[in-house]
Simulated scan of single mutants.
Amino acid sequence: MFEVIPAVDIKGGKCVRLYQGRADKEKVYFENLVEVAKKWESLGAKRIHVVDLDGAFEGIPKNIAIVEEIVKSVSVPIQFGGGVRTIEALDRLFSIGVDRVIVGTVAVENPRLFEEMVDRYPGKIVLGIDAKNGMVTTKGWVEVTEIPAVSLASDYDAMDIWGFVYTDISRDGTLTSPNFEEVEKFASAVNRPVIASGGVSSEEDILKLSKIENVVGAIVGKALYEGKVDLASVLQKVG
């Protein structure tokens, strides 16, 4: 079943969306993060994607107390990403009840540590690959590497990770539609499941992503907050 996963992005204790991952281009949508998570659950979301933007930029989760509140307030699983670069951070997140943790920068900069994380939590780590023009970016989308997204994914595909979240950051928060060609290229290069993220602007975009082989979900942020996508309606169509 294809999952439509609402994104709850935390920055400064509020629910925001960034434009192309830029910290200086934010828009606040909700002051109360628990309230917004409950809203998406009430509309039928089966999973919520929580991102600690402060953590992504600073390299250590900064909003764990808020995340814990969200976990306790909803009954659907929470997948979390943002600044998870140590075993301690990972342990803390799983101890508060997070279902899956997205790790990105570590996989690029410290493969041995990433392997240790996966061994410690088999099937629970998601490799988050944030790409710009097909190349991997790290440290909260700030640094562009010379590593092709597909080749990084191939390196880890055989490990006991859950799968991948593939984000095209040039489309993220822009409402310009996903880069379907890149998503398809990425998804066809790996065996593990892929969740697509970045650029969803309409119900049609989600339906199109749901037809790409090996893409099992889409993370939707700005399109939900701006009223471009009706969550209950699209869930009926992909369910």
Rank of each mutant, 00 (worst) to 15 (best):
K222H: 09
V101A: 05
F94V: 09
S154I: 11
I161L: 14
V98H: 01
D24P: 08
Y121I: 09
F30N: 10
Q20M: 12
T176R: 01
L224N: 10
V98F: 05
T105Q: 07
A189K: 12
A56F: 09
I87Y: 05
S177F: 00
D54V: 09
P178I: 00
T105K: 06
V101Y: 04
Y19Q: 10
E182F: 00
T138D: 05
D160T: 07
G82R: 04
D160S: 13
D99I: 01
A23H: 08
V84F: 07
G239L: 05
D119Y: 07
G59W: 10
T138V: 15
L90M: 12
A232P: 02
I10T: 03
T167W: 00
V229Y: 03
R85D: 10
S42K: 15
A158F: 09
K25G: 04
I10Q: 00
F30D: 10
V34H: 07
R22E: 14
S170H: 10
A56V: 12
I212H: 04
A218L: 05
A196P: 05
V238M: 01
V238W: 00
G59Q: 14
E182L: 01
E41N: 08
V84E: 11
G221R: 09
E88P: 08
I147H: 08
G199M: 06
V144D: 01
I125H: 00
G97E: 12
L53I: 12
G104Q: 03
V136A: 11
I10V: 12
R47M: 11
T137A: 14
Y19I: 14
L33A: 14
L43R: 13
F114D: 09
K228N: 15
G140M: 09
D52F: 00
D54T: 13
V190A: 08
A153S: 12
L152W: 02
G173C: 13
I169G: 07
V229C: 13
V150D: 05
V4Y: 02
Y225C: 04
V71K: 12
I5M: 08
L53T: 11
L224S: 13
V118H: 03
V71S: 09
L231Y: 01
C15G: 10
N110D: 14
T174S: 13
A189G: 11
V101N: 01
A131I: 02
E26N: 10
G82M: 03
R171M: 10
D130N: 02
G239E: 13
K185P: 00
L235G: 00
D52M: 03
R17M: 02
V220C: 06
M135K: 15
E69N: 15
D9E: 12
Y29A: 09
S210M: 11
M135Q: 10
F80H: 04
F164A: 07
F57P: 01
F80Y: 15
V28M: 08
T174G: 01
K62N: 09
R17K: 15
